[in-house]
């Protein structure tokens, strides 16, 4: 066994332009998919609470199917399956001067759909955690359902919703590695290409792993800051827990989140 330290440190500290482009694509696809999934997932969650049974049905079936099937299968159906039966074929596009390859479009669509179902469940649970009396008090003050949702229910649900959403974004960033299978040149596909060109398979995979770890760790700090701010807004004691401790002692954090929910 021989580990090429020179190659390893070179790849880690001065990654090739191709690798950096892959890293950026990983980040962009993650952020865009998550942002779209937040919108779509919230819509699905609201549909699930609609007065109209048909909308509740559609929302329920959507979540059931999307959560019950693997991401990879969903991606393949969207990218290859639809094209194979002539339903829909992704074409390379240029929007506002940014070129979007067919596979990238399919990737964003697939990740958005997949993630939206989980977001919908998280948002639903968050909305349900808000006492029914809050809606009634809003109605009694002359608020319409939309206003009650916007000003009263959502802000309170947010504290329940944010922590699991953050965890899901962590998962989504790692899941982008499966995009290599439909040919999206994100970080993992570039790493595989470097591996077959240099045969330094172990070294480059460790480098890729370290970059994923860096992404998720940076996000963990961001998430901790957001949660701390949210808790501070409602005057919750757990706001005092330092960010560093939140990131590296997740069990402590979980307890505090639950306490926060009870204090609502």
């Amino acid at each position: 066994m021989k580990f090429d330290w020179t190659f390893f440190f070179q790849s880690l500290l001065t990654p090739s332009p191709a690798f950096l482009t892959g890293l950026i694509l990983t980040i962009v696809i993650s952020v865009v998919s998550m942002a779209l999934a937040l919108v779509l997932g919230t819509l699905i969650a609201l549909m699930g609470r609609s007065r109209f049974p048909i909308l509740r049905w559609v929302a329920g079936i959507y979540v059931w199917i999307v959560r019950g099937t693997p991401l990879l299968v969903q991606l393949m159906i969207i990218y290859l399956g639809f094209a194979a039966i002539g339903l829909f074929k992704f074409e390379d596009l240029t929007i506002l001067g940014i070129s979007l390859l067919a596979a990238v479009q399919a990737a964003i669509l697939g990740l958005t759909i997949n993630e939206s179902a989980y977001v919908a469940e998280i948002v639903r649970a968050g909305l349900e955690s808000v006492d029914r009396g809050q809606t009634e008090a809003s109605m009694a003050l002359g608020m319409r359902p939309g206003a009650a949702m916007r000003w009263i229910i959502l802000p309170q649900a947010m504290r329940i919703i944010i922590p699991p959403l953050g965890n899901n974004f962590n998962g989504l960033m790692k899941n982008t590695s499966v995009l290599s299978i439909i040919g999206v040149s994100e970080m993992f596909l570039v790493a595989q290409a470097i591996s077959s060109a240099t045969f330094k398979t172990f070294e480059i995979l460790i480098v890729a792993a370290i970059y994923y770890l860096a992404l998720t760790t940076i996000w963990a700090f961001a998430q901790a800051l957001i949660e701390r701010k949210l808790n501070a807004q409602v005057g919750n004691d757990s706001a005092a827990v330092p960010v560093f401790k939140r990131v590296f002692a997740p069990r402590v954090r979980k307890q505090l989140v639950l306490e926060g929910a009870e204090n609502a």
């Binding site: 008090a137 009263i152 802000p155």
Partner: peptide
């Protein structure tokens, strides 16, 4: 036009 006061207050905690 109608105020309602609940048994459990239902103030907005946030």
């Amino acid at each position: 036009e109608i105020g309602f006061v609940f048994q459990h207050f239902n103030l907005f905690p946030h």
